Amino acid sequence: MSPRAVPATTVARLPIYLRALDGLAADGVETTSSGQLAALAGVGPAQLRRDLSFLGSHGTRGVGYDVEHLQVQVAAALGLTGDLAVVIVGIGNLGHALANYVAVAGKGFRVAALVDAGASVVGSTVAGLVVEHDRDLVQIVRRGEVRLAVLATPADVAQELCDRLVAAGVTGILTFVPRVLTVPAGVDVRSVDLATELQILAFHERRKTSARALAGRP
């Protein structure tokens, strides 16, 4: 792999390239052109070639990219060469769905533990795992050598749980909680706020509606 630093924008596109490659492999495609792969990923061919060059992959002129080889390269760049242990904290409707998704389709990931504080949830079985109490969170994380966590809890307890996860050794957190989490240097947080995304879409829809009205179109 290239020693050059990979830009964050390129990293964000790598999972899209991997998904496209997985689809091609499932269809029995052995080689693909930059144009075909770029179209599947929704980017321009030049952008795709530039992104893949950071991985040391330049394809073969007149042939293109070997799908299986490129799958391995992109997966390795994303750190998906093993079975990354993940703990999911908050097993409501969303946490329940996430646990089942990762268990079935989470390539490169493994749900190591499920955690909640609700008396009606703790002790139940979800995705083949018994939900454990959050009072044991630090021990659960250390027992499973977990480095990644998913937070799907109420907002008022999210920061406290985040602090405990970090103290236990978690260095990457995916949060579905609608609040900003404060973490120390060296801990990465990715936030998915469904309400915010819908509000952004609503903003763009309002602008399109206004533009149509000004143009006299329905």
Rank of each mutant, 00 (worst) to 15 (best):
Q73C: 05
G42R: 06
A149W: 02
L137R: 04
V126E: 01
I91H: 06
T31D: 08
Q159I: 03
E145D: 13
D134N: 15
V141M: 03
G92L: 03
A77Y: 00
G59P: 05
V138D: 07
V180N: 13
P3E: 15
A149P: 01
T32C: 12
R13V: 03
A112G: 11
L14I: 06
R50E: 04
A168H: 06
V67P: 02
T153A: 04
V63Y: 07
S2H: 12
A75S: 07
H96C: 11
L174T: 11
V166N: 04
L194R: 11
N100L: 09
V104Q: 13
L21R: 03
G123C: 05
G23W: 05
H204S: 15
R207A: 15
L151C: 08
S53K: 11
S34Q: 10
D163R: 09
V170P: 00
N100W: 07
G144D: 01
Q139A: 15
V187L: 09
V192G: 03
T171G: 11
L174M: 14
L52Q: 00
L114E: 02
L70I: 09
V11D: 11
I16H: 14
T209R: 03
R50L: 12
T9L: 14
A5M: 14
A75V: 06
V102Q: 00
V183S: 03
L84P: 13
V87N: 00
G169I: 13
A158H: 04
G56F: 04
H96V: 06
L181V: 05
P45H: 08
A26Q: 09
G123L: 06
V138Y: 05
G172C: 11
D156C: 12
R217C: 07
L165F: 03
D193F: 08
T196L: 11
V63N: 15
